[in-house]
Each structure stands twice: as C-alpha cells, then as structure tokens.
C-alpha cells in the first residue's frame, strides 16, 4: 500500500507533487483537512524573463549573488568591505536568526551590472570571510534546475 492512500479526498490536485523518491512517512493535519475554497491561490504568476541565453537571471534593478556559510557575527559593513572589490554594491540583504539574533548564515549582494556580479561569483567563491570559506553563486536562475517528475495526487 502506498503512503498516499492515507490522504483521502484531496483538493490539492493542482499542486505539483514532485517526488523522486516515494513517500514513506506522512505526518500532520494537512493530510486530513479539506482545503477547498482556496481557488484564488491558483492564479497566474508573474516573473521576469531572461534574455534567452543560459547563465544568470537579471533582477529588476541589478544582478544578485547569494552568499552562504556567512559568519554568525558578520555585519553589513563587513560584507560590503569584502564584496566592494568586485564593484559597486547596490544592496545587501543580511538576515538574522529569529531565535538567536545572530546572522542566519546567508546574505544577498546586489550589483548594478552583470560583470561586477560575475566577478564576485568567480573570485569570491570559496574565499575566506571572517575565518570561514564562503560560497558565492548566483541567486536566481533563468530556467528550472532539473526536470521534476509530476506524480498526480490520487
């Protein structure tokens, strides 16, 4: 018997059910509750189109890189100092862990042009930042990362 069998009648047919591995264990009220009457969730979504080439996706006002393994005591100023070598940093997003108040571990850096952001991805990935090697990549992608198999919910 498939674990899906426990789901009962479901209104979630329009949601993508994408599992490479079969679900072995399900837990929670969501598998029981009726969620009909939420049709407004399924309208058209608006996105930004790339230029048709592969590579990064431009954001509305610039190019955003994603930084992970950021030191928990890092400040925006520390990040600015580290990333300003590659170009003019337009914006920094640095979020805190809501429970501890320390840096959550990631940041986003926005540059005005692609060359600057590319330079950050090329030269600052794996660089040491406050004693930790950081990972620097693009934040957004113009296309899906992989094909997902859609398995309809019964």
């Amino acid at each position: 018997m498939d674990a899906m069998d426990e789901d009962g009648p479901s209104q979630q047919g329009q949601r993508v059910r994408s599992t490479v591995t079969a679900v072995r264990k399900s837990k929670g009220r969501g598998f029981r509750d009726d969620r009909s009457g939420r049709e407004e969730l399924y309208g058209a979504y608006e996105g930004l189109d790339g230029d048709g080439t592969s590579g990064p996706l431009k954001s509305v006002e610039g190019w955003v890189v994603f930084v992970s393994n950021v030191h928990e005591e890092a400040s925006e100023e520390d990040l600015h100092d580290h990333f300003a070598d590659c170009g003019d940093v337009k914006n920094i997003y640095l979020n805190l862990d809501r429970r501890t108040g320390f840096v959550k571990g990631y940041a986003m850096i926005e540059y005005a042009n692609q060359q600057e952001a590319q330079q950050a991805v090329n030269s600052l990935n794996d660089s040491d930042f406050m004693t930790q090697p950081i990972k620097v990549t693009w934040a957004f992608s113009p296309q899906p990362l992989r094909r997902i198999e859609n398995r309809p919910r019964r």
Partner: peptide
C-alpha cells in the same frame, strides 16, 4: 491588489 510572483532560484538557495 493580489501580488503573485514566480522565479527560479539557484541550487545554492535551495541548499540553504
């Protein structure tokens, strides 16, 4: 009005 936005994030964002 309703805001509905979609995009694709990179592998690094998914991993984080």
């Amino acid at each position: 009005v309703m805001i509905r936005k979609e995009t694709y994030v990179s592998q690094a964002v998914l991993e984080e």
